[in-house]
Simulated assay, not measured.
Amino acid sequence: MNTGDFVNIEFVGKVKDTGEVFDVTSEEVAKKEKIFDPRTKYGAITVVVDAGLVLKGLDEALKEMKIGEKKTVEISPDKAFGERKAELIKVIPMHNFKEQNVDPTPGSYVTINNLSGRVISIDGGRVRVDFNHPLAGKKLEYDVEVKGEVKDAADMVKGLTTYYTGIGLDKLAVTAEGKNVDVKLGMANVPPQVKKTIADAALKWIKDIDKIKFVDEFAR
């Protein structure tokens, strides 16, 4: 496949050394692995090849695949979530957490000073927090299948909207007239910056459109 192709993919992402599943598009597999989240919309997702919408290692693999192909891809840390960095383990005074109404406990994930990390330990008035990504330094393995290519401009925009918002395809209404596309978001509250991200991606990768309009709906 080529850079800029829109494709529907399904996958199971695992930590190579342990087999732990951390990312999956199948509801059945999510339930089996006990990582099911009722807020998640399961099923094939639309991505743009080589556009950075998936991990770099997976993006590179997609470029070498064909429609209908299944493949197991091994991804090194440098093409996944990076190597672990000692400088991202920080000691933060407890009063900083209190000022931001955060109650840290060992093993919990916290957001402090706009950074998210896992609390390693608490010693007196000091909290040791690891701000590395939980999968940093780990080799990953993806079982990926390219289900099909997306050719229609409206379907491309719909796929991007679902990717960036998590809104189910059944909740979106996307229509195209000439080079103009209208996206009806229903009752979903999508921030302006997310709409701009969707529009920027669509206008960059979809040659058949020049304008996107988002339509919000309100009801009693």
Rank of each mutant, 00 (worst) to 15 (best):
N114P: 10
V157T: 09
G137K: 08
F131K: 11
T111W: 03
E99K: 15
G125H: 10
H133D: 12
T72G: 06
V157K: 08
R126I: 03
V157H: 09
G117A: 02
E74F: 02
H133C: 05
I75K: 09
T72D: 15
S116V: 06
V157A: 06
S121P: 15
P134S: 07
K139Q: 13
L140E: 06
V91Q: 12
K70Y: 00
M65D: 12
I75D: 07
F81C: 05
P106S: 04
K66D: 06
N132L: 09
L140Q: 09
E74Q: 11
M156I: 06
V127M: 06
N113K: 12
Y109T: 13
P77V: 00
K139G: 12
F131Q: 10
D103N: 15
H95S: 09
K70N: 11
H133R: 05
H133A: 03
L62N: 06
G107K: 11
I112N: 08
E69D: 10
N96L: 10
E149I: 10
L88M: 09
S108F: 01
F97S: 10
D78K: 13
F81Y: 14
V91P: 12
V102S: 07
A153G: 13
V91Y: 03
D155H: 08
D152C: 07
R84T: 07
A154V: 02
V127D: 06
T105F: 07
I122F: 04
K71P: 11
H133F: 01
I75W: 03
G159Y: 03
E83G: 12
D103A: 10
K90F: 01
G137C: 10
K138D: 06
K71S: 11
F97A: 10
L160S: 11
I92V: 09
Y142T: 02
V91F: 01
G117S: 04
V129E: 11
P106A: 05
G107W: 04
S76G: 05
L88C: 06
F81E: 07
P106G: 03
Y142H: 06
Y142N: 04
P93E: 01
I89F: 00
V119F: 03
K63A: 04
E145M: 13
Y109W: 06
G68E: 02
D152I: 08
Q100Y: 02
S116R: 14
D103P: 12
K138A: 08
N113G: 08
H95N: 12
G82F: 01
A136S: 14
H133P: 09
S121R: 15
K70P: 08
T72P: 14
N113R: 13
D123W: 00
K71R: 15
R118E: 11
E149R: 15
K70L: 00
Q100H: 09
H133L: 01
F81A: 03
K139R: 15
M94L: 15
A154M: 05
Y109D: 12
K63M: 10
L62H: 04
A136H: 10
L88S: 05
V119S: 08
S108Y: 01
S76W: 01
D143M: 04
V110D: 11
G107T: 04
E74A: 05
N114Y: 05
D78H: 09
L62A: 02
S108K: 13
